[in-house]
């Protein structure tokens, strides 16, 4: 039986390896590349859409931060609770990620990251300036 199977294996190999491979149509590569290019365009569009959606969101975010910082006594309150805020950064990061998630079908783009960092730095500089004003 083992002998038979070995022989069958050899015969199958001999016959099947000699069969011509079927070929797809001549335009096959061109069709695949067309699809690939349209995918690239689609992903560019998504990237654009990410920025596009962020344009109206950005001033709103600024207004919210600005508004919060204008509340009398808020800066002092924040400064007193810096440790707690520091611990909450993880949660803030999570919140920001979830906030921007619906506006994008891809992961956070570098531009989005820069914008978020700018807002964050603005917020920090405001805090620092208040701190300096209080101690000098």
């Amino acid at each position: 039986m083992v002998h038979n199977d070995k022989k069958l294996d050899e015969l199958t190999h001999e016959i099947l390896s000699n069969l011509d491979r079927d070929e797809p149509s001549e335009q096959f590569t061109a069709r695949v590349m067309d699809s690939v290019h349209s995918l690239d365009l689609q992903s560019d569009k998504n990237r654009f859409r990410t920025i596009y959606w962020f344009i109206p969101v950005l001033p709103v975010l600024f207004a919210i931060f600005w508004g919060i910082l204008r509340i009398p006594g808020i800066k002092e309150l924040i400064l007193k609770n810096l440790d707690y805020i520091n611990q909450s950064f993880g949660l803030i990061g999570l919140f920001v990620r979830n906030l921007i998630k619906p506006f994008t079908t891809m992961s956070v783009s570098p531009l989005m990251l820069i914008i978020c960092l700018s807002v964050f730095l603005f917020f920090l500089s405001e805090l620092y300036l208040t701190y300096r004003r209080q101690h000098h």
Partner: peptide, 21 residues
């Protein structure tokens, strides 16, 4: 650079099509 993908398609299209068929 997606242009290199055309080379990969050309290289493997026969085998993939033949297997699918």
């Amino acid at each position: 650079d997606s242009s290199g993908f055309a080379v990969l398609v050309d290289r493997h299209k026969k085998a993939m099509y033949s297997f699918a068929l």
